[in-house]
């Protein structure tokens, strides 16, 4: 089994997280984590980043826009 270097590891992080690596590449990927502290940290940081992006507050339409659209819906359905 060939070893994986850090460049290849970084390139494959997203595919790894999407579970799109084939079994062999996945083994090399996880094997690299065991021997490279930096890439272990990198992977954790990517996970934290993804989680933090997911926690950004989302807003919805303003009440006014919503009212406008509901009114547009009533007009449209009365067509």
């Amino acid at each position: 089994m060939t070893t994986m270097n850090c460049e290849e590891f970084v390139d494959l992080v997203t595919a790894y997280l999407d579970e799109e690596l084939d079994a062999g590449t996945r083994r090399r990927f996880t094997g690299h984590i065991g021997v490279c502290g930096g890439c272990d940290v990198y992977l954790r940081q990517i996970r934290v980043t993804v989680a933090e992006v997911g926690r950004l507050p989302a807003r919805n339409l303003t009440d006014r826009s919503r009212e406008n659209l509901l009114e547009a819906f009533r007009d449209w359905s009365a067509r």
Partner: peptide, 21 residues
């Protein structure tokens, strides 16, 4: 095109994951 620059050896972030909110 399909690669991302390799960071310098990443250093662990100071806060535990749950605290960087």
């Amino acid at each position: 095109d399909d690669s991302v620059a390799l960071p310098q050896t990443p250093v662990a972030w100071p806060s535990p994951e749950g605290e960087i909110l």
